[in-house]
Write a protein that binds this DNA or RNA. Structure first.
Lengths: 219, 219, 219, 219
DNA sequence: GATGAATGAGCCTTCATTCAT
DNA sequence: GATGAATGAAGGCTCATTCAT
């Protein structure tokens, strides 16, 4: 506990004071953990503080209120999610088919698709129905995502000479990912991550002439 | 609401005491309403009692605890859901194609697919991740449902001479319905019930050679 | 449960309706049991009704309130206690020495000195300090008892030519019985009833020249 | 009570926050007062908090539950009782006769023998019969006490050449003190503290050849 | 007389929030 | 910045009491 007299260059000791943003990130990460473990309804400020290894007074200092802490946590998850698929798509190049595959697989990126994050997302979804302020961040995660996957479906149709309804197809792909996520959270004996990926690819293949037939799901 | 000065022959006057099961049903219905409106986390016993027009003591009298009231509510929803699709399938006859259509559309039956029930389901899903006792009732609603839709997919494949993976296809159909439900709850400007049905049919058509191409979604 | 059509002369079946006083006695006996088991603080009307095998509505019907039920229970115990030592003394004849012995042993009469009754007495004592209405019934059980044991001590002094203070001696004998009772209730490994009797006799012998030296404690 | 307009240098102002142990002691003292006044059964957390001049939330903060608060109060009384007679005996020197006198009189020490403490003890005794967890602390207050008074009785017998049963004698002395305490609590018109002391000494004299015949009870 | 559903006051407890140090 | 004691609103639960049947 004692810190006075600490020798210079003791890097393993967490500093007594940290930059604002680091503390905030630390607390948000703790919030995700607690929501995942306890559920939304039974998440308390003390749990969050204890998980972060901080005093509970600090949580209010940095986030003003529990309401705000939870909202900021959702905003963080939402931004992280957005950044993740944006990066994946950017890396995929200009080809719609590559972009769609990148988009579909992005949700299974290990930084995003952790048990804690899946649980936290589920918890926020459950509350969103009665919390207008959560809705536009939870509904489909991300309006830009919806717009983009629709665009891709249109481009795929054009490229492949198909005429399926891109709105419905993109919706099915989106909710399939969502549903697979929920399965991973909820099912007593859930299937593997590879099987989850395979399921999403199976859906995409059904609408786009099997173009993803040679994908390796283990990646 | 007022009853004073009730004219002679006012048969609508609710009896002060009711049979146990009727009161339980009444309280469960109130619980669904409150969860839908307030969300799981902010549902209180007083809300439930007030919504049912009863004293809060009665809720504990019939359900012993809040925990138990919520569990019984989930069990009720689960049983209701199960009974609904079972009835729909039974009515559809022996043809797998008719049975699958009946199954897919059953979830949109007006008795099941009300805003209150959708919201309540969402709320329970959100909690299920951290409540093992909820999981087997929420996971996929219903293990029998999963088994049955898989069987139907196998039969459809046989009949239509297809060889898609029935596990993955049935999973996609299931989560598509789930996802469409969540959309109806969560999206700021959700689409219509017909569009919801159409989306599910679109998914089924993609896997089963368009056999449902002539379905009327408005029914 | 069914009682209709009961053949004449079925004495083993408790009658649907009982005389007032029998029901009251039945409920008081149940109250003693419950207080003994649960303690005063955690005794509830429902416990009493359940122990008596009756509906809890009946308890209020017969006793108007919990407060009154408890008071009447104490009055019953008090009257029973009084009647017991009165009868014992009456049976002992006119000799003060025999009367004192009868009085001291009366408290160990099997009708009085049961675990349930001892516990119930302890519970009422504990409450008496803050309940003026209990005090004169609990303090020394019974003012007549105090007066009588003092009289006996005076008579014993006269007969034996002693001059100990009869007030203090009678007080010591009284509280010794009380204390032995409490021990039987409270001590983890209490001593036997014979040892309890022996202890009281030992006290009496100390003040009255060993006149009770040949008493058989096992009786 | 009022503090507004407090003059400069008002040192009596209680600090808003206190060390944990001080607050605990303060709350235990308040609990004793409330039990004494209301009895065990009607003691509420709010009463305790109000008596201590603190918010009710603080009681749970320091004691977690009512159950625990009451248990810790009993443990405190028990420890206090033990420390009191230990100190009295230590001060009395090595002579068994002096030690026994010190032990018998210790229970009337003004720090121990206050109306509030006597009432609280009575209340706990009353509950102990149905609370195993209270029993070993209430039974005879203190197993060490029992052992010690027995030892003293043996030593007194040896010194005085007597052969009374030390177990029964020590038991009578112990329950006489207990009974006198209960009298002070319970009797409508209880006798004085001096008379209480005199009664105990009278008992001791009866068993030990009047060795305490010259004691001044007023001390 | 007897029943048990219904009521509501009162209690214990939790927990978000404040604030002196 | 950081801490943790302190507050008090709010909620779950118990249980004595009532009352229609």
């Amino acid at each position: 506990m004692e810190q006075h007299d600490a020798p210079l260059d003791a890097p393993q000791d967490p500093p007594r004071t940290m930059p604002r943003d680091d503390r905030r990130a630390q607390l948000i990460e703790a919030t995700i953990k607690v929501i995942a473990k306890m559920g939304y309804a039974r998440t308390t400020m003390s749990d969050v503080a204890r998980t972060a290894g901080l005093s509970h007074g600090l949580v209010n200092f940095h986030f003003q209120s529990k309401e705000n802490l939870l909202l900021e946590t959702l905003l963080f998850l939402s931004a992280e999610y957005h950044a993740n698929w944006q990066a994946a798509v950017a890396e995929a190049g200009a080809n719609p088919q590559d972009q769609l595959l990148a988009l579909l697989m992005a949700d299974f990126h290990p930084a995003i698709c952790t048990p804690d994050r899946l649980s936290a997302w589920s918890a926020f979804w459950g509350e969103a129905a009665s919390r207008p302020i959560y809705q536009d961040r939870c509904g489909s995660f991300d309006a830009a995502y919806n717009a983009f996957i629709e665009t891709l479906c249109v481009q795929m149709n054009n490229e492949l000479g198909l005429n399926s309804d891109p709105i419905r197809v993109s919706r099915i792909l989106r909710v399939t990912i969502q549903g697979v996520w929920l399965d991973l959270m909820t099912l007593p004996n859930a299937y593997s991550m590879s099987e989850a990926r395979a399921t999403v690819i199976t859906a995409a293949n059904a609408f786009f002439s099997n173009v993803f037939r040679n994908i390796d799901f283990e990646a």
